[in-house]
Computed example of a mutant assay.
Amino acid sequence: MGESKKPRLSYKARRRWSLVILLIGLPLYIVAVITLLNALGRPPIWLELVVYAISGVLWALPFKFIFIGVGQADPEAEEDK
């Protein structure tokens, strides 16, 4: 049937969103995880390490599509020859 193409973010938009996520969202996420873990009572150090390791990976999964290719040159820019 008909293919519906999702509107994709431009390279510049992805770069801007990645900066917002890294500079604002990630520190807020870290504070939230630490606050939640301490509110539940301080677990044993090994469990705390496991929770931090898992939450350290989980934050990036929803934003995977934003970070793909951000560190490379702009594919939409024209190269000077």
Rank of each mutant, 00 (worst) to 15 (best):
M1I: 11
M1L: 10
E3R: 09
E3D: 12
S4G: 09
K5I: 14
K6I: 14
K6Q: 14
K6M: 14
P7K: 13
P7G: 01
R8E: 15
L9A: 13
S10H: 09
S10P: 13
S10Y: 12
Y11H: 14
K12S: 11
K12P: 04
A13M: 12
A13S: 13
A13Q: 15
R14D: 05
R15K: 14
R15L: 15
R16E: 09
W17R: 04
S18Y: 08
S18F: 04
S18R: 06
S18A: 15
V20K: 05
I21N: 00
I21H: 00
L22E: 15
L22F: 08
L22Q: 15
L23F: 11
L23M: 14
L23I: 07
I24D: 11
I24S: 05
G25P: 15
G25T: 07
G25D: 04
G25N: 08
L26C: 02
L26W: 13
L26V: 14
L28Y: 10
L28E: 11
L28K: 05
L28G: 13
Y29E: 01
I30G: 00
I30N: 01
I30Y: 02
I30S: 02
A32D: 10
A32M: 13
V33G: 01
I34T: 05
I34Y: 10
T35Y: 12
L36N: 10
L36S: 12
L37Y: 00
N38W: 07
N38I: 05
A39S: 14
G41K: 06
R42C: 00
R42K: 10
R42S: 08
R42I: 05
P43I: 10
P44D: 14
I45T: 13
I45S: 08
W46Y: 08
W46Q: 09
L47M: 14
L49A: 14
L49E: 05
L49G: 09
V50A: 14
V50M: 13
V50R: 02
V51M: 06
V51E: 00
Y52D: 07
Y52M: 10
Y52P: 04
Y52F: 15
Y52A: 03
A53L: 15
A53I: 14
I54Y: 11
S55V: 11
S55P: 03
G56Q: 03
G56R: 06
V57M: 12
V57R: 03
L58M: 15
L58G: 04
L58E: 02
W59G: 00
L61I: 15
L61T: 13
L61F: 14
L61M: 13
P62L: 09
P62G: 06
F65N: 05
F65V: 04
F65H: 12
I66Y: 00
I66M: 00
I66C: 03
I66W: 01
I68H: 09
I68D: 12
V70W: 02
G71S: 11
G71Q: 03
G71D: 08
Q72N: 09
D74K: 01
E76V: 01
E79N: 09
E79A: 09
D80C: 04
K81C: 03
K81M: 08
